Amino acid sequence: MKNFPLIGIGITTIGKAGATLDASFPYILFLNGESKLDKYFEKLNGLMENDLMQIDDPNLLDIDDGDFNSTLRNLGKNKVLVLCRMSENKPIKNIEEAYLKLHLISYKFFLPNSLNLENLFDNLVNVAWTNQGPVEINEIEKEILHSKKNNQPFEIKSVDKFPPLTDYIVPPGVRIADTRRVRLGAYLSEGTTVMHEGFVNFNAGTLGPAMIEGRISAGVVVGKNSDLGGGCSTMGTLSGGNNIKISIGENCLLGANSGLGIPIGDNCIIEAGLYITGGSKVTKFSQDNEPDSIVKASELAGKDNLLFIRNSQNGVIEARINPKSVALNETLHKN
């Protein structure tokens, strides 16, 4: 993992009303970093009087790298080159910092839940995400009419504060069947497969190879070699008063249409259709497979080797010792 201070070299999109709509950061430099551009950190840091700086002439950066210079020259008329510096992990002050922090997670420089995302929603702008980039909401109808008049393709992928991840970053070794269902700020490790019904929110993701056919809500992390079955759900922390960060350990399985409202450890299984919240009453079984006690599910948070099922005869939720080990199909995760 990386650390502060850092400087993002970004390209922002300016709307017709003059407001910044988004920011892409193809280059992020770290003090004492090991990438080929990190050696320029001190030079750029010396240029900056403030933490956010507009660069009118790319030559001012004086970076001797052909790929870098060709990327940042001849920007479009609504594009602006910026430097955004972060010295500490503080609350977000502007849209550029918001996008830079989302990039830091999706580049996997920082783990989910490790960055201060206070004020994130306040600084992001709700726009239409199209095949021609972000468009202001009040300009959408004009753009639609213009495209029809000129017979030009114009696709609105979503109307949201968060863009699709792959409009900015394509993580290596990952498959995403429907790219609209993974937001910028998602953390996807190599070997992850996100199927059509899978969804990954910002500040959430996978820590190793995983099969995702369900929902990874904001703040949720999934351990390596775990499988989230079709239509399953994990409880997030953005609304509803839940402040418990949900995590799924390694080698776990969430059955189809199941739900999880507590953290679970390694080698756990939740049967299909079973939704467990912290207050769910669970009959806990002993190592001898005998009923032991009745507890709240929250008391089993983080425990390894548990099999959660609902007794089909009396409807009681049971937590038994899990005798099985979940194994992903390696062929499906050679991405």
Rank of each mutant, 00 (worst) to 15 (best):
K2G: 02
K2V: 05
F4P: 08
P5S: 10
I11D: 06
T12P: 14
T12E: 14
K16H: 13
G18W: 15
P26F: 03
I28W: 13
I28N: 01
D38E: 01
K43R: 11
L44A: 08
E49S: 09
N50G: 06
I55W: 09
D67R: 01
L72R: 13
N74K: 13
L75G: 10
L75D: 09
V80F: 06
K90Q: 12
K90M: 08
N94D: 13
E96Y: 10
A98Q: 05
L102C: 02
I105V: 14
Y107I: 08
K108W: 04
K108D: 05
E118I: 06
E118V: 03
A128F: 12
T130Y: 03
E136F: 01
N138A: 02
E155Y: 08
S158F: 02
F162E: 01
I169L: 06
P172T: 07
V174W: 00
G185D: 02
Y187F: 13
R215F: 06
A218T: 15
G223S: 15
K224S: 14
N225L: 12
L228S: 14
G229I: 05
G231E: 09
G231K: 07
G231R: 07
L238A: 10
I246T: 15
I246Q: 10
I248M: 09
G249V: 13
G249M: 15
N251M: 03
G255H: 02
G261Y: 00
N267W: 00
I270Y: 00
T277S: 10
S280D: 00
T283E: 06
K284Y: 07
K284Q: 13
K284I: 11
F285H: 05
S286C: 09
D288H: 14
D288G: 11
D288W: 08
S293C: 08
K303F: 09
N305F: 07
R310E: 09
S312N: 09
N314E: 10
I317L: 03
A319N: 02
A319W: 01
R320T: 00
S325K: 15
V326L: 04
L328K: 10
L328V: 07
N329I: 06
E330Q: 10
K334F: 04
K334G: 14
N335Y: 07
